[in-house]
Amino acid sequence: MALTPLEVEAIRLSLRVAGWAVLISLPLGIAVAWLLARYRFPGREILNGLVHLPLVLPPVVVGFVLLLLLGRQGPLGAWLDDWFGITLAFTWQGAAVASAVVSFPLMVRAIRLSIEGMDRRLETAARTLGAPPVWVFVTISLPLIAPGILTGVILAFARCLGEFGATITFVSNIPGETRTLPLALYTYTQVPGGLDGAFRLMVIAIVIAFAALIGSEFLARIVKRRLEG
């Protein structure tokens, strides 16, 4: 069962979109999780609500909001275009942004839980040994919350691979540019005689998901061993 060029394209695009989505949201996710877990500040509940909004909104609504904000005519989209020459609407970069937004709450939740579960007294101990706060964060906090970060990354990556509604609304369904695996499968189901192609993509999706699960389990074990010795 050799893959057709179209399938290869959809797989590569899906992985690229999901990869970039996770990569750009990870630093922000850690920062927001840290902020929510450690600090009490005015507007904290609003930030918390905003972060979780994509989890409860229909993805199509998220996509439409993105289109309004980041489309060529949108306030943010026009600014990005004028100043940086970046166009998000109807590009794969836009698909990555849509996936990142939709998967963000999952990532933040997982990381925040591990920050809250971490023994802060270890950070105190590190400071009494002379380490400045930034060094403590890098050498103590980050490694100790690594399992949570890993969980967040995997959840977010999986969510990105499955992203459909926000993507199709924001960046449409352009072959080779924004037609990721779910969109390609959907397209097959919309044309006569496309069921075979849809079936093949379904199998591919299952294989990828399964491989990701096994891979993450393996990684989690390595991290756990590193932490507990």
């Binding site: 270890l122 101990a125 400071r127 002379g130 400045p132 100790l144 507990e228």
Partner: peptide
């Protein structure tokens, strides 16, 4: 003075060793 600048060592009741380091 911040704790990291006091140069005062602290041995805690529970040790508080860093579990991820040898």
């Amino acid at each position: 003075i911040k704790p990291e600048r006091r140069r005062i060592g602290y041995v805690f009741q529970d040790g508080r060793l860093f579990p991820h380091l040898s």
